[in-house]
């Protein structure tokens, strides 16, 4: 029971949380804000596809095939006369969820592996890293194909397989950074204050290795969207006529000369997504690292 003095506010000892501070920092990064806005728009479009898309994405209309962009078909039509714009909007549902879920899988699998390996070292490190090495010896796409073959050609399995393929790379990166951070004096200092391995890894090391993780995850996202295309092309993953950016892109290659819009639309949107995510990752990295904050403020004032 605290007696609240009338002169002092009820919560005089509140500290602004570091996440609030980071969140305040984020909008200062212009490119990241642009990335965020674009990404939100793309996601919204995918989510609201049935209300936004002007046509049914799988409706075949051979009389209108390979039409160039016009007011009727904003991005033209493909070789079955399907509206490219509508396919783009619907395809986002597959491609974005593949990207996001692969990132989540890679994070959930790779980060704990890397942290454990880097922090505990010794035998655990040896064991985990040999396992990771074994995964890395396979060409990534082949491994994904094998996994999907094993699990069945289902879009969820594609995500799982791509996550499994990306996790070892992430684990290696996290391990490397952890090895470096582990030797920092503040880790010894935390141990000298009675912190156990869990606290040290989660509250001291993880925060300090977030930058390389975020950067790698933006790469994983891009790789996943493209890999889904390759897997779909090979007949795994999304099955025709279901739209997906990657699939539409590879299908459009046959008509590159006659209907370049068919190819440019999905390629453009993938590029836009990857670019937005990279900007976003940049901003996140800076927002999560307090040491980068002052510099930014100085830059915006024209000092630096």
């Amino acid at each position: 029971m605290a007696v609240v003095q009338p002169s002092s506010p009820a919560t005089p000892y509140r500290i602004t949380g570091s996440f609030v501070l980071a969140a305040r920092q984020f909008p200062r990064h212009r490119a990241a804000m642009v990335g965020l806005v674009l990404l939100v728009l793309i996601c919204l479009a995918a989510a609201l596809a049935p209300w936004i898309a002007p046509y049914d994405p799988v409706q075949i209309k051979l009389s209108a095939k390979l039409k160039p962009p016009s007011f009727e078909h904003l991005l033209g039509t493909d070789h079955f006369g399907r509206d490219v714009f509508s396919r783009l909007i619907y395809g986002g549902r597959t491609s974005l969820s593949v990207g996001v879920l692969v990132v989540v899988f890679a994070f959930v699998l790779g980060v704990p592996l890397g942290l454990a390996s880097g922090y505990f070292g010794g035998r655990i490190d040896n064991l985990l890293m040999r396992l990771v090495d074994a995964f890395l010896t396979f060409p990534p796409l082949l491994l994904a194909v094998a996994l999907v073959g094993l699990l069945g050609p289902d879009i969820q399995n594609v995500m799982l397989a791509l996550g499994l393929v990306q996790a070892p790379v992430l684990a290696r990166i996290v391990r490397g950074s952890t090895l470096a951070v582990r030797e920092d004096v503040y880790v010894t200092a935390a141990r000298a204050l009675g912190a156990g391995p869990a606290r040290i890894v989660l509250s001291h090391i993880l925060r300090n290795v977030m930058s390389p993780i975020v950067v790698q995850l933006t790469i994983v996202f891009s790789a996943a969207v493209v890999a889904e295309a390759s897997l779909s092309f090979l007949g795994f993953g999304t099955q025709p006529p279901q739209p997906s950016w990657g699939r539409d892109m590879s299908e459009a290659r046959r008509f590159l000369g006659d209907a370049p819009w068919m190819f440019m639309a999905p390629t453009g949107i993938i590029m836009l997504c990857v670019l937005s995510i990279n900007f976003l990752g940049d901003g996140l990295r800076d927002a999560l690292d307090p040491r980068a904050w002052r510099t930014r403020r100085q830059l915006s004032k024209g000092e630096g």
């Binding site: 570091s18 200092a189 935390a190």
Partner: peptide, 28 residues
């Protein structure tokens, strides 16, 4: 040993530039 470290015995280190975690607030 962890129970005792920080409560019954504590240690400060040479380099104050490096013995605080750079990404956590002082309060934290």
């Amino acid at each position: 040993a962890r129970e005792i470290r920080g409560s019954r015995m504590a240690m400060i280190f040479q380099d104050p530039m490096r013995s605080l975690n750079p990404v956590l607030t002082i309060g934290r």
